[in-house]
Simulated assay, not measured.
Amino acid sequence: MTGRTPAADALELYDRTARDAAATVIARYSTSFAIACRLLGPRPRPHVRTVYALVRVADEVVDGPAASAGLSTDATRAVLDDLERETIAAIERGFSANLVVHAFARTARECGIGESLITPFFASMRTDLAVRRHDEDSHSAYVYGSAEAVGLMCLQVFVNAGARRIEQPPPALADGARRLGAAFQEVNFLRDVEHDTRALGRDYLGLSPGGLSRDDVLDRIDDDLAAAAAVIPDLPRDCRRAVTAAHDLFAELARRLRDGGTAGGRVRVPDIVKARLAARAWAGLSPLRERRR
């Protein structure tokens, strides 16, 4: 053969292609996240995209496409198990034939994302194949794996992308990352409660008369958003705008959920409001603080 690419250049090209694949996943599945991600600096941006691409692919495995392709629950679980094993193996060897996994593995190696965060995430994804109604304990475990651990992965990126050596984030930032992830997840639970119940047969919140109410969940969300907002100024400068934009988008969703519920369909933030929130974040304004009514 002629025109063979040198090995080092070939890996660089493969890395770029893998990162482009991750960016495509995010652009197709989450316009809101894609907007927020553009507010990140060039140092953390590609790494955060790779984290969310892997998370999205795993989430899609359990949320419909696999079943639509004719896979049984056991077969879907096997696909998810294979994805977890390939992810961990790719981190160890620095390569995967799966482009999204490869991109994530390169990020994990550079930023110090290990099995202590990956294993709980995949455990929560497996829960979606087995648990239909969550109690308080299973809810907490699910939220940790599916959302808080992802927030901690992103924090590892914020602190370590491009650094000479990996450092552990300060405890206050770790708590803020967890609470912001939890708030995002619980907003989505409330937005999707009808779809989750009717289409997927899942009850994540266990709302009931005389028990946990929507207002209880919204109060918890507001508390978590406030705690996260307090530490956003302590993040690296090239991450603050994007995290502020994401925080403010979910604060706006929480406000609309409190005002209008879900009677009119899935609560959304209009594009013009998203643009306004992104603009204020770009201007360096502080995160929004929602006053509970």
Results as ranks from 00 to 15, higher is better:
243 V>C: 11
127 T>A: 15
276 R>F: 03
22 A>G: 14
271 D>A: 14
246 A>S: 15
243 V>R: 03
82 D>Q: 11
256 R>D: 05
198 R>E: 15
77 R>A: 15
245 A>M: 07
54 L>N: 09
3 G>H: 10
191 R>K: 12
101 V>Q: 06
193 V>G: 00
26 I>N: 04
181 G>V: 13
251 A>L: 05
96 S>K: 05
86 E>Y: 06
156 Q>V: 09
77 R>L: 12
156 Q>W: 03
226 A>D: 12
62 V>P: 00
186 E>H: 13
156 Q>F: 10
53 A>M: 11
176 G>K: 03
121 F>T: 10
143 V>N: 00
131 V>C: 11
248 D>M: 00
34 A>F: 03
104 F>T: 11
94 G>A: 10
46 P>H: 07
137 D>L: 14
273 V>R: 13
195 H>Q: 13
31 T>N: 06
119 T>F: 04
141 A>C: 03
70 G>D: 09
57 V>N: 05
54 L>V: 15
119 T>V: 15
274 K>R: 14
76 T>H: 06
4 R>G: 09
233 P>N: 11
66 A>F: 02
242 A>K: 01
22 A>K: 04
248 D>H: 02
43 R>E: 14
146 S>E: 04
162 G>R: 04
270 P>V: 05
23 A>S: 11
251 A>E: 01
261 G>M: 04
228 A>T: 06
131 V>N: 08
219 D>F: 10
1 M>H: 10
183 A>N: 05
281 A>I: 05
172 A>Y: 11
98 N>P: 13
195 H>R: 14
118 I>C: 06
80 L>G: 00
70 G>M: 06
84 E>F: 00
281 A>F: 03
